[in-house]
Design a protein around this nucleic acid. Structure first.
Lengths: 329, 329
DNA sequence: GTGAAAGCGCTAACAA
DNA sequence: TTGTTAGCGCTTTCAC
């Protein structure tokens, strides 16, 4: 069913049909309007948004570029984006970049060729094609993993939580809970190792000595947590606190601790970051610094759409983490 | 950058440019071809696939309709679909229907209006608008949650694992591991309660009596597992096996068991279905009937694309579950 | 109030 | 070997 057929059946011109389906029908007589509406309803006509997009130069689609939907950090964000977008009449298409900078630009090109109106971008952890992706004229908001130079870049929005500060607060939490020998398990490559720096700064504030054998940096995976916890505990059996760069790492650490027969939280306290869905269900349930992922997704989408629709400027939107007390601290 | 500009800069007609970017350039001289390629590369020209789609009547996009990407069962499937699709030059756009039949048809209309070439559909658990979605001419493959009548419908493909059989096997597993008082925790509304029927049939085979107070059916959530385990154990403290309709339920059950201070697997054995990512990380790690989710996604995408590209018929593709022995059985 | 016509960027006959 | 042209379904002036 096309606009042409609707027009023919309703006995009007396609221009008229176009006007009524788009609500630009002030100058259409009630009778005609009704006639068109009836045909549209009867045949369940749905305007072809590809054709419309070609004509209007906007697709009402926003593109999402993210490393891997399989990573439990992302689904909530995507839902937040999608829900907010749908509410405002936008659709969403997303691409997994697989944490691969080359795929990142491929995906970007794909989205461009689909004429998305803007993108929401979470870069890969590997050296990224950021410049290729963010340099262009397509409105973009960077979500999480914001980099130092992005912040200078007035051309794109940013939505994130300050992870260095989160890590700082997490370390403080452990100290306040009585830990004196706090180890840090995180990824080697988070943007400029922000998290690790948060840990360091907390140590300074606390006047605790820094010893690199208390630190294990590799990836944002359970495996890192597992190996890290084992390694640290082997050198330092007296370790009584583990700040983990994310919940995945914390989960791995919990597993190692259980094998090592350390009581959590009595002997060792553990804190994660992210509050992923499953941090509720570890044993014991994980205490963590929650990121408001769903809300961040919503915020990114709203910012982008406000920009697209009303020309509101893109801006920087920093969320606070929220401490979720469960049973590992 | 449009094809027109490329043509102007290269000093050829747009038809020529079109031919070379589409590889239909047997009849183009090497010199011209090179000239065009150079311009394309220099200006990083990317063909507008919206315009192309409008013309060719195909978008090289496949649509995915699923209940909720936030449900840990889906991300793997989506990845499987996306990877297989990308490999063959297709993109993917997905919509969360939120398990809401109305949204289901909205999403369907959205995808149609985007001219997707076909869809992969996982229906909502609520009474679904299946007919509206599967009746139309758009090629479709139903993934998981296949219903009895779908199977008669020659017009769509099906990819699933036989959950009744899975549940049957899971129950048998528990019996073989020494359980005699096996309870069933599942969702009330899985398509025709297939899982529950699998449990029943296993009981029959085993000549075990059926007692409905050993059964708790509600939703596919941890909460159901938690409440179910508590309810069953209260009536029947001697329960020594829990077959769970999915891993989420099993995880909730594990939590209840831990609160009840039942030793798993010594006193009570637990088995789940799905092998979601986190079933690895429960305490103890969950034994479960794995569904090859990633592979199922790939299979659905391949089937659909084979149909689209070569007219191969859509078919029914039944996968086997695979028992993953961990530490709860 | 309504419709004719141009054109969005591209492909595919067909003509030259 | 290359270019001209019609048209995909739609929106949007502008004329009637």
């Amino acid at each position: 069913m096309t606009i042409k057929e609707v027009a023919r059946i309703a006995g009007v011109s396609i221009a008229t049909v176009s006007k009524v389906i788009n609500g630009c029908d002030e100058h259409i007589s009630e009778a005609t309007r009704e006639r068109v509406r009836a045909v549209v309803a009867k045949y369940n006509y749905i305007p072809n948004s590809v054709a419309r997009g070609l004509k209007t130069r906007k697709s009402k689609i926003i593109g999402i570029l993210l490393p891997d939907i399989t990573n439990p950090y992302f689904p909530q964000i995507v839902r937040g984006i999608e829900d907010a977008a749908n509410l405002r009449g936008y659709g969403v298409v997303f691409c997994n970049t697989g944490d691969n900078p080359d795929r990142e630009v491929e995906c970007y090109n794909f989205l461009r060729s689909k004429m998305v109106d803007g993108i929401i971008f979470t870069r890969s952890l590997k050296r990224s094609a950021r410049n290729r992706v963010l340099t262009e004229d397509l409105p973009a908001v960077v979500l999480d993993r914001v980099e130092r130079d992005d912040r200078a870049d007035k051309a794109c929005g940013k939505v994130y939580v300050d992870v260095r500060r989160t890590m700082y607060d997490a370390t403080m939490k452990l100290f306040q809970a009585g830990c004196g020998e706090i180890a840090c398990l995180s990824a080697a490559s988070d943007s400029k190792s922000d998290r690790f720096l948060g840990y360091l700064r907390a140590l300074e504030t606390l006047d605790l000595p820094y010893d690199k054998s208390y630190v294990f940096l590799d990836k944002f995976t359970e495996d890192t947590g597992y190996r890290g916890a084992k390694a640290v505990l082997e050198h330092h059996p007296e370790t009584d606190g583990l700040v983990c760069g994310n919940d995945l790492i914390a989960i791995g650490a919990l597993q190692a601790l259980s094998e090592l027969e350390r009581q959590v939280p009595r002997q060792v306290k553990v804190i994660g970051i992210d509050n992923i869905y499953f941090s509720n269900f570890t044993t014991p349930p994980l205490s963590t610094m929650g990121q408001p992922t769903y809300t961040m997704g919503e915020a990114a989408a709203s910012m982008l759409i406000d920009h697209l629709e009303y020309g509101k400027p893109l801006f920087e939107c920093v969320f606070d983490h929220e401490y979720i007390q469960r049973q590992t601290v």
